[in-house]
Amino acid sequence: MGLETPAGPAPRPAEAVDSGTLSLLGSELLTLFRRRRTWAMIGALALIPILIGIALRLAGPAPSGRGPAFLSQITENGLFVGMTALVVAIPLFLPLTIGVVAGDSIAGEASHGTLRYLLIAPAGRVRLLLVKYAAAAAFCAAATLTVVIAGTLVGLVLFPIGPITLLSGVTVSIAEGLLRFLAVAAYVTVSLLGMSAIGLFLSTLTTVPVGAMAATAILAVVSQIMDALPQLETLHPWLFTHYWLGFGDLLREPPVWDSFVDNAVLQAGYVVVFGALAVGRFLTKDVLS
């Protein structure tokens, strides 16, 4: 794995940590986005809008009020392919890929026997966790943007496009609409951060990456099932999946930012709790591989 050893005369400590962290992050991102697995997952995510687009192109318009949200609007305005694909991808496909990346972060290195080399650098363990988490967060953004951008491009190719009708029945220009879609991508990225922290923590528990990946993805599904059970209503606002489909609030006029804020606060809570747990576990762990 790309481990950067400080070369030349030692710079001042703070700078050393900074540049060391940055180069570690750089090499981590490079490793992540050079892996074939990462590209396979991104390709699979891009396939969702492509399939939706082709299916609708062949089968004709969907009746309104059926199927995933925004589906019936696609044939009138192709720009909605991205939103429909997002609605389809959020419950399972996105968490699955995030689970793979986050669950693999520490356990993957441990199973390859590369973890101890990574820890030789000064200020080792916490920094490594931070870098691994940052890489997972970067993948969250990449995965979400893939779905939105691929969807928008597919819509552009296969369907007529035009000014975008928001949920409130207000029509905005294409430029503003695309900005809103970017805001939605940001929302979804933020919603996945808590799950990434859980994945990171699980990844510090084991040296079997598949275990951590599966556990993370399963937790996301379990959380969504709990969110659907009215008997557990008091728990709902605390589930990390609770606001996952709340991005619709950004497609209203005027946009409602409450759920964006609630979601960000909730995810920050998960990041703090599971980040702290991961640090506690990783600092006290005997790294044998």
Binding site: A276, V279, G280
Partner: peptide, 8 residues
């Protein structure tokens, strides 16, 4: 070292 994990 577990303190942050408990405190958060």
């Amino acid at each position: 070292r577990w303190i942050p994990a408990i405190a958060a």
